[in-house]
């Protein structure tokens, strides 16, 4: 049992390499820890807090906590499920998420994670914020009502596409996603469907125009199997109902 270091996750030994986080090591070992702002292709952000785990009895975000030999990590406990459910419910009431009317329903990571943690209703009082929809771009539409502030599009556009199209402005509950042009319109940017930023949204905020309901409800990504089996929508190829344009 010498050589590779490991930690235990819900009793299971998880090997890791130096420099990996708890999340990265768990995913590599095929163990799912629910997450939204984490995407294995990007530097961890730690903002959604859905991946909370108990590391040696302390609450930590799995995506930002370095793995260390001998750690005891708890993930699938009722306590953590309840906290995660609460955080998901917060995300749902903060924006305007109307799943039955959303083209992304069934292939939405937010919805799938919500089901995974056992969330059946938003529970908290809805904020009903007034947010616009931006349909100025010929190929894509942004519905800010569904934004959960994960900043994946911000990171993808800045770090991968080199376009820096998105940003977050404001503070506290006023913080919101913006498009980086004087008009604030996506149509005025060089945004393209081939951008990484077009493929990373875990909700239905950034949608492709002209192709609605290609896959019927009932046959969508998460309709038959849960997210811990299927994986993240952004990590799956288009042919499997994912976002990746291979």
């Amino acid at each position: 049992m010498s050589g590779e270091p490991s930690f235990t996750l819900d009793g299971q030994q998880i090997p890791f390499q130096e420099g990996q986080t708890v999340m990265q090591a768990a995913l590599e070992a095929g163990v799912y820890i629910p997450h939204l702002c984490f995407n294995p292709e990007f530097t961890p952000h730690g903002s959604c807090r859905v991946c909370l785990v108990k590391v040696n009895n302390r609450m930590q975000a799995a995506c930002t906590t370095p793995a260390a030999g001998g750690q005891t990590v708890q993930s699938e406990t009722e306590e953590l499920r309840e906290i995660r459910r609460g955080i998901l419910q917060m995300l749902f009431v903060e924006g305007n998420h109307v799943c039955p009317a959303c083209e992304k329903s069934g292939a939405c990571q937010l919805q799938a994670v919500a089901y995974y943690v056992g969330m059946l209703a938003p529970h908290f009082k809805h904020f009903y914020p007034r947010r616009p929809v931006d349909a100025s771009h010929p190929d894509a539409v942004i519905d800010f009502n569904r934004c959960i502030m994960c900043e994946l599009c911000v990171r993808a556009s800045r770090d991968v596409d080199g376009k820096n199209i998105f940003a977050v402005e404001g503070r506290g509950i006023q913080a919101h996603l913006v498009v980086n042009t004087p008009s604030g319109q996506l149509g005025a940017t060089g945004f393209s469907l081939h951008d990484k930023a077009a493929q990373v949204c875990p909700t239905g905020s950034i949608l492709t125009k002209h192709r609605g309901y290609d896959i019927p409800i009932g046959q969508r990504l998460y309709d038959r199997k849960p997210i811990n089996v299927v994986g993240d929508v952004a990590q799956l190829p288009d042919s499997q109902g994912g976002r990746r344009h291979d």
Binding site: S47, R49, I87, L91, I148, M149, G170, R171, G172, I173
Partner: peptide, 10 residues
Amino acid sequence: SCGFCTPCRV
């Protein structure tokens, strides 16, 4: 609240 993380922001 700075608005970065969900449980504080909301």
